[in-house]
Amino acid sequence: MELAGTAAIVTGAASGLGAATAAALTARGARVYGFDLQPSTADGLIVDVTDPSSVAAAVTRAAGGPEPLRTVVNCAGIAPSERILGRKGPHDLARYAKVIQVNLVGSFNVLTLAAEAIAQTTADDHGQRGVVVNTASVAAFEGQVGQAAYASSKGGIAGLTLPAARDLAQYGIRVMTIAPGIMETPMMETVSEEYRKGLAAGVPFPNRFGTADEYANLVLSIVDNDYLNGTVIRLDGALRMAPR
């Protein structure tokens, strides 16, 4: 699918994976609308992905320009850690629900409302109208101690991929998911260097953290390859997470 002269939505565009993806799509000629709670790109919009009215208004803006909306990348997410039974008692239910709401429901909210707008565009010569790329995590498959909420949310995104692709096939809209491993993002900058080295040592090859640019490049590859649809791609250096 061609990117030049089209519009794209990237959630979580103010930093990390989202910022790198927004930059990569822009470099390929797309007009990117960054959705985030913080200001991001020149076309950054303050959007709460869990709020249907907030997302609907932002999608209308992104789809209302001269460029057809073709690409959506969901990067917005949170990752608090808490054990099901910890020193302070059982897992806080409101916190669990918040993670599900932001990571899973937020991605579904953007996917659904953006797909409605994409479905109204004119298909290209191959019958394609667009592609949605969601972000899961290797935690969807090997959630660690303290990741019950996060792993649940990311497992939901992985499970959403195929039925969403099947639902939207009639409109020429593909749905893919990337499951990153340990990535070099602002979130990782908050932990100690010793802990970071320990995490990197567990990656078979390359023996390091992944980069936001590597994530963004995979997004571009998915956009380019029209036959990629309905599956989850791990971006993890062959990492399989240990319990802790």
Rank of each mutant, 00 (worst) to 15 (best):
E193H: 06
T177W: 01
A119K: 09
R70N: 02
H126D: 09
A4V: 12
A238Y: 13
F205K: 15
A200L: 05
D51K: 03
V105Y: 11
G143R: 02
L93D: 05
P206V: 11
A164P: 04
I46S: 08
Q170L: 12
A117K: 06
A115R: 07
G44A: 08
G146I: 00
G202V: 08
G146F: 01
S40C: 04
D226L: 09
I173T: 01
D213N: 09
A200E: 10
A151R: 01
V59G: 01
M187D: 06
N207C: 15
M188G: 05
Q101T: 05
I233E: 11
V102G: 02
G202H: 11
A165Q: 01
E194N: 11
T185G: 08
R70F: 09
R196M: 15
L113Q: 14
A24L: 12
A140T: 06
T185N: 04
A97M: 08
L85S: 13
T71Q: 14
V232F: 00
D43Q: 08
P204A: 00
I178K: 11
T177L: 12
I118L: 08
A13E: 14
N74F: 05
G16H: 00
S40P: 10
D226A: 11
M187H: 01
Q170G: 10
G18F: 13
P206L: 12
D124Q: 00
N225L: 02
E189P: 01
R196G: 13
P90S: 04
E194W: 07
P68R: 04
A201L: 13
